[in-house]
Simulated scan of single mutants.
Amino acid sequence: MKKFLSIIMTTILSASLLVGCSSKDDGIQKIGLIVSTLNNPFFVDLKAGIEKRSKELGYEVVVLDSQNDPAKEVSNMEDLTVKDVDVVLLNPVDSDSAIASVMIANNSDLPVITVDRVANGGEVVSHIASDNVAGGDMAAKFLIEKLNSEGNIVELEGTAGSSATRDRGQGFDEGIKESGFNLVAKQSADFDRTKGLTVMENIIQSKGDIDAVFAQNDEMALGAQKALEAANMKDVLIVGFDATDDAVEAVKQGKMAATVAQQPLLIGETAVNAVHKVLSGEKIADYIPVELKLITK
């Protein structure tokens, strides 16, 4: 009986090892994707673009959501180091806190490519994003043309510390510098629709006379639009950034004046193309830009 049980246990162990080997050595390479948040249509589209192109090229994608928490992002990167991924696509919550995440990957000899937002330290193979400075400038030029370079302007900023916030703000602020605009308020709403609504309500109460709003993403723009509509300020020009489905529909209906199209699906596809080159032993550029365009009615 002991001999019989020993044979059974040996057989089960051998089978388990074979299953483990076959799943590990099945030839499918894995891409680890850390997303800042999936509670935002832009990043949902970014993920969809990555998954679509990965499927076409035969890669498996392991997706982890940081839920806009830098500590969670670090934990996600630690998880990926033991999940047999071959490369990491990192969409940071915050450009400074992302340094820790990148260094964890560096210490595990795991290549990192940042997407949409940069990491301010650590060794990164490449950064793939739209030119956010150019996008901010595009929004500024649009409002200058529409308002003849005059009026009271509000700017809603994204998450403090993110490269997207810094770059979009830089492009817009430099774009309006030589205009006759009066920047009456510049406040953060963390790229969030509900916060965009609340912050805009407070600005309306304190400032009153507003001609235009530039929101550094569409979620904040849509929140601001609701606040302005409730205050019966329907003539205020609102420009967003990202060209999410809700924002494009708002532009079509005349509720928003414009949105800068960042094309997250294309960013995702471009990121996977870069991964493919890296895993094939090719060198890629330090920065790979993705085309922007302005969506108007």
Rank of each mutant, 00 (worst) to 15 (best):
F214D: 00
V112G: 06
I99P: 02
E157Q: 15
V124P: 12
G135F: 07
I104F: 08
S126R: 06
A98D: 10
V184E: 05
N202D: 15
A119I: 09
R193I: 01
I128K: 07
S97M: 13
L156C: 06
E123G: 03
G175F: 15
F142N: 01
M200A: 01
P92W: 12
V154R: 03
A98F: 09
E157F: 00
S97Q: 15
S179P: 06
A105T: 09
E157H: 04
E145Y: 03
G208H: 10
G171V: 11
T165F: 04
I99R: 10
I176W: 12
R168P: 07
G169R: 13
P92V: 13
G171A: 09
F191C: 05
G122E: 05
K141Q: 13
S149K: 07
D192A: 07
R168W: 10
I113W: 11
S162D: 14
H127G: 07
D94Y: 10
D94Q: 13
S95I: 04
P111T: 11
V118G: 01
D137M: 07
A185T: 07
V125C: 06
E145A: 14
D173L: 14
D109P: 08
I204Y: 01
I113A: 11
D218M: 05
M138E: 08
A140E: 04
A100C: 04
K207D: 12
I144G: 00
R168F: 10
V133P: 02
A185H: 08
A140S: 02
E157P: 00
G122K: 10
V184G: 03
I203S: 05
D109T: 09
A160N: 13
N202V: 01
E150Q: 15
D116E: 13
D211T: 08
T159C: 05
T198N: 06
G171H: 13
G175K: 14
A189S: 14
S101A: 15
Q170Y: 09
Q205V: 03
V118I: 14
N132S: 07
S188P: 14
A189I: 03
E219D: 15
N148P: 08
V118K: 12
I99Y: 03
A160R: 12
E145D: 14
D209H: 12
T194W: 00
S126F: 09
Q187C: 07
K146M: 05
A189R: 08
D109C: 03
